[in-house]
């Protein structure tokens, strides 16, 4: 058993268990809040992007292109250092809050592309049918387009959520005490890289496995009973 302790001393990890739990909590809070904000904001962006008014879709297209073509880390720095300069009220906000804002703004662009793809996949005839029976734009959106778009959106949305959870690890660079930071703390106090980073990697892998299971359940659920009976 000695070689196991040499390579990976789980007793050290045990001592840091509450730090890991604290970090995991911050990671999950950051992921959950920015996911909700990103989906809401992303849906609005997608609707603007699909508008025929240039004043609406052009700025959104530019925003999405900017987010897609620059690194998340630079975007986090821009928000973390830049937002307090632009909006002085945010200067006293915590790193976690600013990090969540950065992640939300980043993922909103990706979500808007996903939602746009989902909406575009709804056949044109469906919308025309809605018009023909006299539905207004909000009604068509609420009863015809969004329910169908939702089913097409959910699988890529879950994929993006898995990416989002991984991306929260970048918040450790702006001093948010997330799951990765707990490992960095262990390494800086005990100089045991195996115990710190392999534990962290295993933790993220566990989250990934949960996300994989969730997405396969959702896929089966969306396909419906008729499809699954045949498969």
């Amino acid at each position: 058993m000695n070689w196991v302790l040499d390579f990976y001393n789980y007793r050290i990890v045990e001592q840091y268990l509450d730090r890991f739990a604290e970090g995991l909590e911050n990671t999950l809070v950051a992921a959950a809040l920015s996911l909700i904000a990103a989906v809401v904001l992303g849906t609005l962006l997608a609707l603007c992007r699909m508008s025929s008014r240039a004043l609406l879709w052009r700025p959104v297209a530019g925003y999405v292109a900017f987010i897609l073509a620059t690194p998340l880390l630079v975007q986090i720095y821009l928000i973390y250092y830049g937002l307090p300069i632009l909006v002085p009220a945010t200067a006293r906000w915590s790193e976690l809050a600013l990090g969540i804002i950065a992640l939300s703004l980043h993922n909103a662009a990706y979500m808007s592309e996903i939602v746009r793809g989902g909406i575009a996949s709804v056949p044109r005839g469906q919308i025309e049918g809605g018009k023909a029976v006299g539905m207004s734009y909000p009604q068509r959106l609420r009863y015809i387009v969004l329910p169908q778009a939702f089913a097409n959106t959910l699988p890529p949305l879950l994929g993006q959520t898995a990416v989002l959870i991984k991306d929260t690890s970048l918040l450790s660079i702006i001093a948010v005490f997330d799951f990765l930071s707990a490992g960095l703390l262990l390494n800086s106090e005990r100089v045991r890289p195996n115990e710190s980073f392999l534990t962290i990697a295993a933790g993220y892998l566990a989250i990934y496995v949960v996300m994989l299971a969730l997405s396969s359940v959702v896929k089966r659920w969306l396909a419906g009973p008729a499809w699954n009976a045949g498969a």
Binding site: K166, S169, L170, S172, P193, N194, F197, I207, Y208
Partner: peptide
């Protein structure tokens, strides 16, 4: 592939930088 996709790149970088030389 699953291991590389299931962990953040930052964590992989730390593993290559801290764990492997160790």
């Amino acid at each position: 592939i699953h291991i590389l996709r299931g962990t953040p790149f930052l964590v992989q970088l730390y593993v290559f930088y801290f764990v492997l030389p160790n």
